[in-house]
Design a protein around this nucleic acid. Structure first.
Lengths: 214, 214
DNA sequence: TTAAAATATGGAACGTTGTTCCGTTTATCA
DNA sequence: TGATAAACGGAACAACGTTCCATATTTTAA
């Protein structure tokens, strides 16, 4: 019954090398359900990682996404691939917010709000920090991605805030990113509140040497 | 059958507080094989961790120690307990060497040799550094143990070397421990050689401000 | 609109792990 | 030398990451 009929075995002999002959060679659209499921998995993974940590079982994620594990593994062949994908997604979300804040707030306020957002982002990455240095190749590109997305965002915010006279101009975006990162890992017991306070302090420091516009 | 006979339930009423009444009150000696196996397990674990990393399977360790997993788990109820025990053992080995070196070398040389030894110790602890911050309670006391063993050792070596005029006197043992630790993690590709070179540099720095004895 | 092809799906099944359990063996003590 | 408490080995269990493939669904071409 389900044996493959041998007749149509002979395809139009499509050599992989000669495949893209036409200009628009639409190999095939991505199937709608596939796209939907990929989103569902990423969303589920984000939630599960947040509540159970990055070590949460794959089955848990598949279940919450209403998907079989096979479906999950089709797109993320390794567990670490899924972790990396979620990480990139959250980096994107945080980075994109910089643009929104810049468009809806005064430069000084936008900078302050985004730094808070960034701090909150870091707070949920305790478990990942350990995984990053685990040697898994799936994570090897993450640090670069992290920097490539965040540095321009913060640079723009700093630029605006300094040209409008809210803060001084001699701070490199990358240094600030790192400084806040270090503050976040350093704060042990006190947690969120403590870190936020330290970041506020840092921000006040930035304002201190400002050269206000006339 | 195997119910506990109530008769001999009444031992010589041994209150734990009053237990050591006699000079030799041997509840029971530790069985010789038990002791032997514990040593074998620790030794095997040390080797296996060194060659396969801290994530090596428990069975591998048990096999190399010629011991069943049950035996291993009797003494180390959790995998992390074994890891912690091996760690402490290696800390001890390194710390004890300080005394030997101090007794067999001139103060300056002893200091130099031990710092090399300490560097080598750190080099094998890449995998552990990640585990330490994993939140496992078995590891929670390790940082304190680390400091409590190493700080006095190094302090003594520094003391000797500075009173004999080999190095300056204004360096705190703990700061030096941390500095070398940071150097070790920071050196990425270049590995051993690079770290050793940096430590040598540090040591030369210590000599620089020395106030030689007349 | 339809049937075949291409693709995606779910979840049973596999191999490896940490850990528990218990019938058997062994060292110690009287 | 038994009797007994202690220790032993390794089969068995549960949970995990990952693979596999018969089945279901979407897309394409007619």
């Amino acid at each position: 019954m389900n044996v493959v009929g041998p007749a149509q075995e002979i395809r139009l002999q499509e050599d992989p090398d000669t495949a893209q002959r036409e200009d628009t060679a639409p190999a095939r659209r991505v199937r709608a359900d596939a796209q939907r499921n990929e989103d569902a998995v990423l969303e589920a993974a984000k939630e599960v990682f947040a509540t159970m940590g990055v070590d949460a079982p794959v089955r848990e994620i598949a279940a919450r996404a209403n998907v079989g594990v096979g479906t999950l593994y089709r797109r993320f062949p390794k567990r670490s691939d899924l972790v990396a994908a979620v990480f990139r997604r959250e980096v994107d979300a945080c980075a994109d917010e910089a643009g929104v804040l810049a468009a809806t707030h005064a430069p000084g306020k936008a900078l302050q709000l985004w730094l808070m957002r960034y701090t909150q982002f870091l707070a949920t990455k305790k478990g990942l920090a350990a995984a990053l240095h685990s040697g898994d190749p799936a994570f090897s590109t993450l640090p670069d991605y992290f920097r490539s997305r965040f540095e321009p965002c913060l640079a723009a915010l700093l630029q605006s805030a300094s040209t409008s006279g809210h803060i001084r101009a001699d701070i490199a975006a990358y240094d600030l990113l790192r400084a806040i990162g270090n503050l976040s890992v350093a704060s042990g017991e006190d947690g969120r509140a403590h870190t936020q306070m330290m970041v506020s302090l840092l921000l006040d420091g930035l304002k201190y040497g400002a050269t206000p516009v006339a």
